[in-house]
Amino acid sequence: MISNALKWQTKPETRGRKRNTTIHVDHRITRMAKKHPIISSREIKDDLQLPASTATIRRCLREAKLFARNPRKVPLLEKKDVLKRLQFAKEYIDWPKEKWCNILRTDEGKITLHNSHYSLECEYLKD
């Protein structure tokens, strides 16, 4: 019984169907998905000319911790809003750092301009 248990521990796991893709192909799939984050599994299959199905490609991406996401649709800043912000910045450009730290901001959120994140924090004003 002990010898059977030891043999069982040394055997590799061979359950289920044989993989359709190799490790090398999996790396190519994940590399392409990281290079082009919005690309679909169908486009990956066509570009790499893989014999695997799109479901296999999606499974490979999930194993690599690359999950499907839809990009968030955020309206761009309008010209009047940009001008208002610029006018505000010009009015208060001469304020000392201490005055800015005493301001209570209730809408501390990120402003995204073409994939660049800007945020105003009091910590960098104190330096």
Rank of each mutant, 00 (worst) to 15 (best):
Q9T: 06
F88P: 01
T14D: 13
Y118Q: 06
L50H: 06
L76S: 13
K73P: 03
S40A: 02
P37V: 12
A55L: 06
M1T: 10
I111V: 13
K99S: 00
D46G: 02
C101F: 00
L104F: 07
E78D: 14
A64F: 05
Q9P: 00
H27R: 15
V25K: 05
K80E: 12
W8T: 14
Q87V: 07
N70S: 11
E43L: 00
H24W: 11
T14M: 09
K80L: 06
T30H: 04
F88E: 09
H27S: 15
S119D: 06
F67V: 14
F88H: 07
E98N: 02
R15L: 07
I29F: 12
R58V: 02
K79D: 10
I111M: 13
P37Y: 10
R42A: 07
R69T: 15
A52N: 04
L120F: 08
W8I: 12
Q9Y: 11
H114N: 15
M32F: 03
Y118V: 10
H24T: 13
P12D: 14
C122A: 09
V25A: 06
N70P: 04
P71M: 09
C122Y: 07
T112P: 02
R42V: 07
L86A: 05
K65S: 14
A33H: 01
Y92M: 06
L83H: 06
L77Y: 15
K65E: 15
K84S: 07
E91F: 06
T106H: 09
W8E: 14
I29M: 09
K84Q: 08
T10L: 15
V74P: 03
V82Y: 06
L125T: 07
R15C: 03
F88M: 08
K35S: 13
E121D: 01
K65Q: 15
H117Q: 10
L86G: 02
P12S: 12
H117M: 07
K84R: 11
